[in-house]
């Protein structure tokens, strides 16, 4: 007997590896669904390479019917840049957590942004290190309790949470696409990811999408508290929306056609 309420999986998902290995309530599944739908919509399954990092993102190593490489912590973008430089016809997706993007792999993120590498980077921001048991991340909110900030994050000692898309938007040249979405608005998130893939396909420049996500396991929150944290506390610090769309000039700066701007 077929279940009437069986949710529709994106075509690019690999059914054999479902149900997936993420914890109940984890945001990864939602983000990977948005990514799957975007790949389906663009019809690029045949030429998309998926790269995942270390941390919970690595659990997606067999998630898709896509050639996939699970790399090292923070090194997914360099691996995919290495591929893209010799196989420009491929579409490369670099998928990682906030630690991989903003801490151990920060130099790669900044450098790829400056080079306007043709890669689509998706960063899952769940305000802490999930796989290792809930330590402070670059994105941990002020006052937030984690395993390494048991009395709450003291910004005087550990700094303030990093604003990743804002950082990328500040350094990337014209042609870049930068946005922040949330699992609280899946339609928008999918739209951002799809635009990010298109930006690479059309050769305009780097695409960077941060997705606000949930980790009820380490947050030790119930469903209601989880959603309140994402929609209220995280959204207040990490505003969602598009920060850079291709072709537009950077704030107060010259746009395309200026020295150093990439040719299209």
């Amino acid at each position: 007997m077929a279940l009437a309420a069986q949710p529709q999986m994106p075509r690019v998902w690999r059914a054999e590896t479902k149900p997936h290995k993420f914890c109940p309530g984890c945001g990864h599944g939602i983000i990977l669904k948005a990514l799957g739908e975007a790949i389906d919509a663009l019809g690029i399954q045949e030429r998309t390479i998926f790269g995942c990092d270390i941390g919970c993102s690595l659990l997606s190593w067999d998630f898709f019917n896509l050639d996939t490489i699970q790399t090292h912590h923070g090194r997914t973008t360099p691996v995919l840049v290495g591929i893209k430089r010799v196989r420009p016809e491929l579409v490369v997706v670099s998928y990682m957590g906030d630690g991989g993007a903003y801490a151990i792999g920060a130099q790669h993120l900044v450098s790829s942004a400056v080079r306007n590498d043709l890669v689509t980077i998706i960063v899952v921001n769940n305000t802490q290190y999930g796989m290792t048991g809930g330590q402070m991340a670059p994105t941990t909110l002020p006052g937030q309790k984690t395993e390494t900030t048991p009395y709450g994050r003291d910004v005087k000692l550990t700094g303030r949470p990093i604003l990743g898309p804002e950082l990328v938007a500040a350094v990337a040249p014209p042609g870049a696409y930068v946005a922040r979405g949330s699992i609280a608005n899946v339609v928008q998130l999918k739209n951002f990811i799809q635009k990010g893939l298109l930006n690479q396909i059309e050769g305009r420049g780097i695409a960077f999408i941060e997705a606000l996500s949930a980790c009820p396991t380490n947050w030790r929150t119930n469903a209601a508290e989880t959603w309140r944290f994402i929609e209220k506390e995280m959204a207040a610090y990490f505003p969602t929306g598009e920060l850079r769309t291709p072709g537009e000039a950077k704030n107060g700066q010259a746009g395309e056609g200026t020295p150093g701007a990439p040719e299209h």
């Binding site: 790399t71 090194r75 840049v81 290495g82 010799v86």
Partner: peptide, 9 residues
């Protein structure tokens, strides 16, 4: 790691 990417490709 980019060299790794190059050989993977």
């Amino acid at each position: 790691f980019t060299t790794v990417g190059g050989v993977l490709a």
